[in-house]
Design a protein around this nucleic acid. Structure first.
Lengths: 127, 127
DNA sequence: CCTTGCCTTGACGCTGACGACAAGGTTTAG
DNA sequence: CTAAACCTTGTCGTCAGCGTCAAGGCAAGG
C-alpha cells in the first residue's frame, strides 16, 4: 500500500502521513524507487492517531497508544502508559468543563444585564 | 498616563497595548516627543478587552464591546452588537460543552475498558 | 558626560497540525 | 513521445496573541 492509498483509507492526506512519520508515529518500508510502503498495521495506527487527535489529544499524547498497538495489543489503550495519559486527559477535560461552565454562567448573567439595561434606557425600541 | 503605567494598571504589557492599537481597539493621544498618552477611558477599554479575552473571546469579538464603551455606556455589553456577540458566544460555549462532555464519556469508557483488559491479562500485577 | 529608564518602530519567534507549492523522479497508458 | 498520475524532499504559509530582541530617541539625576 502506497501513501496515497493509506491516506485515502485512513481519511487523511499524504502530507499528514509524512508529518506523522517525521514525528516518529508512523513507520514505512521503502520500495526500490524510494516510495513508502505501508501494511495494515500502519492503517490501524493511523486510525488510532486520528481518533485521539479528534478527541483533543496532542501528538505527544498519542505516542503511548501507538507503542501499545505496536507491542501487539488489539487496542492502543490497554498499556499502563496509555492509561496514565487517559487519566490525565480526563482530568484536563474536567478542568476545561468546569471553567467553561463558569464562563457560560458569566456570559448568561452579562446577557441578562444587557437586556435589562436596554429595556431601561430604550423602552421605545422594544418590539 | 504613558504606556508603561497603563500596562501596569491594566495588568498587561506595553507590547500588548500596541498590539491592540494596531488592531484598532485602543486609542492614544501623542505627546510632543511621540509618546502615547492614555486617559482613564482607555484603561476601562483595556480592562474590558482583557476580561473578554480571558473568557475565550477573540479580538474581533471584542470590538463591539469597545465601541459600546466609547459610545458613552457604562458597561460594554448593553449595545445590540454586543448582545449579538454574547448570544453567539454562549451558543459556541454550549457546543463545546456538549462536545467535551461526550469526549469525557468516551475517555471514561476507554479507561474502563483498559483497566478491565489489564485485569484479564495481567492479574499478577494487581496490587 | 554618562547612566538609567522610560519610550519609539520594526521584525522575527512561538505553538500545532498540517496545507500548498516547488522542482523533480517513476511508471503506465495511449 | 507525451501526458497523466503517482511518488519524493524541502520550504514557506496559516491562525492568535502576543514575547523578545534590535536599534535608537528622549528626559532626568549624579
Amino acid at each position: 500500500m502506497l501513501i496515497g492509498e493509506l491516506a485515502e483509507r485512513a481519511g487523511t492526506s499524504p502530507r499528514t502521513l509524512r508529518y506523522y512519520e517525521a514525528h516518529g508515529l508512523v513507520r514505512a518500508q521503502r520500495s526500490a524507487n524510494g516510495y513508502r510502503i505501508y501494511d495494515e498495521t500502519e492503517l490501524r495506527v493511523v486510525r488510532e492517531i486520528r481518533a485521539l487527535l479528534d478527541v483533543g489529544f496532542g501528538l505527544d499524547d498519542v505516542r503511548p497508544f501507538v507503542a501499545c498497538l505496536r507491542a501487539g495489543n488489539t487496542s492502543g489503550d490497554v498499556c499502563p502508559d496509555s492509561v496514565v495519559v487517559l487519566r490525565r486527559k480526563i482530568a484536563e477535560v474536567d478542568v476545561v468543563l468546569d471553567r467553561l461552565g463558569a464562563v457560560r454562567e458569566q456570559l448568561h448573567s452579562q446577557l441578562t444585564h444587557a437586556i435589562a439595561h436596554r429595556e431601561k434606557t430604550c423602552l421605545r425600541r422594544r418590539k
